[in-house]
Design a protein around this nucleic acid. Structure first.
Length: 630
DNA sequence: TAATCAGCTTTTTTT
DNA sequence: AAGCTGATTA
């Protein structure tokens, strides 16, 4: 059932609207209901574009609509900015262009930096380029080294028809703004454009939205300025205020009734976020009971902190609480290690919403690169990955010769390999290795096209001997499990009929664009960023220490919003922990409690202290023996 | 010439 | 603690 405000958001006759919706106010339900309402009013599905923040969120919306038995949902333009832009580009550029992930992007830049002989941090260059693209800016003629590298990178991608994430958006924007007929077509097609999590849109995304909807003023945005946590990625909260002046006739609806959190938890969240100066006005309230006090635990060190959390989880488990309903949130991925050690010891199942994205893992990337080579052996990036894995005796020297040859003659790496053999530049083990490799790829080229996606991946795994290769490494089992998971994903993959790519190409693009991994069994471990949009009965927020959270380099107000997001994930129970001492970058550091802790009223808190550290008093002249292990 | 090993920096957050 | 570079060994 929807409340009056939600109802108003769903049924407004204004095509443009700003739905300012706080945490736990039923925003997803509103979005789904709004789409349903439009469809029931007779709006054709293809006239609706709905943009969500993650693919997972898009799938959820689709599921919920499907449950309402609405027709022609496949016609709906539903997805992330990136996936929708990809679809648009594929429809109008005849399937030209491959999507590359950030890690592929980085390796291109590394190559570029080293071949140009420039002393520069590749990651910084990557950051620069992505920031430019987020702002919708192309490389410009300049003396500045960054700009020159950006320009070189652009040329490289152009030549290899590669598209990174930013490129998808930028190019779509340019496609539409440069072809007035096409633009008019889409402006007419879409009667309603809806955007979720709009507080996290960046400049180019908002420009794209305006391009599409400014004339008809048909943009419906949902968001919460207090939950804007992607500034580092170019998100501009100001897009929400900008919207208000760009779409003057818009309806403004505030959703302030929280259905998720206990009074105590919401009270704490409200107090914390009140310390931010830049906010749109909005006050959350709830009819939920007071609930339990918030537990704050000051641990002597990170070890004790983890032990405390595990102990509390065991207690909750004994009381009959499901592990699925418990989450531990932290600021950085590296914090999870201590905790998983203890969870493992206590034999408590857990699931980490991966730091390393599934498709970025070595074993997965390899299989996909082999698939890529089977489709197109001139893909230099994929060739570089596969050439010597499993080991074939092709080392750095050979690789460099190949690259030089390829650069000189302007041919692909594959062709360079052919030439190396032809001009008898290589011999012995290396020659054998290259020959084996080329025979393997040629064989894959033959068999893959006649197989289904699942069969093709299975064939690649078999033919390359990857199982044997990974069995040798100590984390082999995990890698083999991942390969199984990949086969499963491939088995369930549905191809999109409206674009001119075969199922293999679509799967490769999907691999880059999707975040994924459904939630697994057990206690849920994830970064605060990854927790956005989720909710749990019990939430542990760990590592609440100055310079860690709030992070040293972060902007304070954004860090505080992150804290706000973290607190409001909890429905019934919230634990906040910090350690007085922890290992950071190798050495032990004394840590001060996070300033955010002091921003929570004491009356809401039950403060626990760690047992005092035991200090042994030794007789004069005696020293403790140093332990054999540390 | 390639594979392996040991010592070096290096950390936020992600479509 | 992990990933990368440089040195060492086969």
């Amino acid at each position: 059932m929807l409340n009056a405000m939600q109802q108003r958001a769903v049924t407004t006759n204004q095509a443009s609207a700003l739905i300012l919706s706080g945490a736990g106010t039923g925003k997803s339900s509103v979005l789904v209901a709004r789409i349903q309402h439009l469809l029931e009013q007779g709006t054709p599905a293809q006239a609706i574009m709905a943009i969500s923040f993650t693919n997972k969120a898009a799938n959820e919306i689709k599921q919920r609509l499907a449950a309402q038995q609405l027709p022609s949902l496949n016609e709906l333009w539903l997805g992330t900015f990136h996936s929708l832009c990809f679809k648009l580009l594929m429809m109008h550029t005849k399937g030209k262009g491959k999507v590359i992930s950030q890690s592929q992007q980085l390796s291109i830049i590394k190559n570029l930096v080293s071949t140009l002989g420039i002393e520069m941090d590749a990651k910084k260059v990557l950051g620069f380029i992505n920031a430019k693209k987020d702002h919708g800016l192309r490389a410009k003629e300049s003396d500045e080294l960054f700009e020159q590298l950006y320009s070189a990178y652009e040329k490289h991608c152009e030549a290899q028809s590669l598209m990174d994430f930013g490129e998808l958006l930028l190019r779509t924007y340019e496609l539409l703004s440069g072809h007035s007929a096409l633009l008019t077509h889409y402006q007419n097609q879409f009667e309603y454009v809806l955007v979720d999590e709009c507080q996290d849109t960046n400049a180019i995304q908002f420009a794209f939205l305006k391009l599409l909807t400014l004339p008809k003023q048909n943009l419906f945005i949902v968001g919460d300025d207090d939950q804007s946590i992607y500034g580092f990625r170019g998100a501009v909260v100001e897009n929400m205020t900008q919207f208000q002046s760009d779409y003057p006739a818009h309806e403004l609806v505030k959703l302030e009734q929280n259905y998720r959190c206990s009074k105590t938890i919401l009270d704490a969240a409200n107090h914390v976020i009140a310390h931010n100066k830049q906010r749109m006005s909005k006050v959350l309230r709830t009819d939920n009971p007071m609930g339990e006090a918030i537990t704050v635990f000051a641990a002597n060190d990170a070890e004790k902190e983890a032990r405390f959390i595990v102990g509390e989880i065991q207690r909750l488990q004994a009381q009959g609480h499901g592990l699925q309903e418990i989450a531990v949130l932290y600021r950085t991925h590296s914090q999870s290690d201590v905790l998983t050690d203890h969870l493992l010891q206590a034999q408590i199942p857990y699931f980490i919403a991966r730091g390393q994205r599934f498709f970025d893992r070595k074993e997965i990337k390899l299989v996909l690169c082999y698939l890529q080579l089977a489709l197109d052996c001139h893909d230099n990036g994929a060739l570089e990955v596969c050439l010597n894995t499993p080991v074939r005796g092709i080392g750095l020297a050979t690789r460099q010769r190949m690259e030089t040859l390829a650069n000189q003659q302007e041919i692909s790496s594959w062709q360079a390999l052919e030439q190396l053999i032809e001009i008898q530049e290589v011999s012995g083990k290396t020659l054998q290795g290259i020959t084996d490799f080329m025979i393997l790829i040629k064989r894959l080229q033959e068999i893959v096209p006649v197989l289904s996606l699942g069969e093709a991946l299975q064939a690649i795994i078999d033919e390359t001997g990857l199982i044997a290769w990974f069995s040798r490494s100590d984390d082999g089992q995990e890698r083999l499990d991942n390969l199984d998971e990949l086969l499963q994903l491939a088995g369930n993959f549905k191809e999109e009929p409206s674009i001119e790519l075969n199922v293999f190409e679509q799967f490769l693009a999907h691999a880059c664009l999707s975040t994924q991994e459904e939630q697994g069994i057990g206690v849920q471990l994830m970064t605060l960023h990854a927790s956005k949009g989720l909710e749990f009965e019990t939430v542990f927020l760990m590592g609440l220490e100055q310079d860690l959270f709030p992070s040293k380099n972060g902007l304070l107000e954004e860090e505080r919003r992150l804290m706000y997001v973290g607190i409001t994930r909890a429905k019934q129970r919230l634990f906040l922990t910090h350690a007085k001492q922890r290992q950071l970058y190798g050495n032990t550091r004394q840590q001060q409690p996070s300033r955010f802790l002091a921003e929570i009223p004491e009356r809401l808190v039950n403060a626990l202290k760690d047992k005092p550290a035991i200090t042994l008093k030794l007789p004069q002249g005696l020293a403790l023996p140093t332990p054999a292990y540390a």
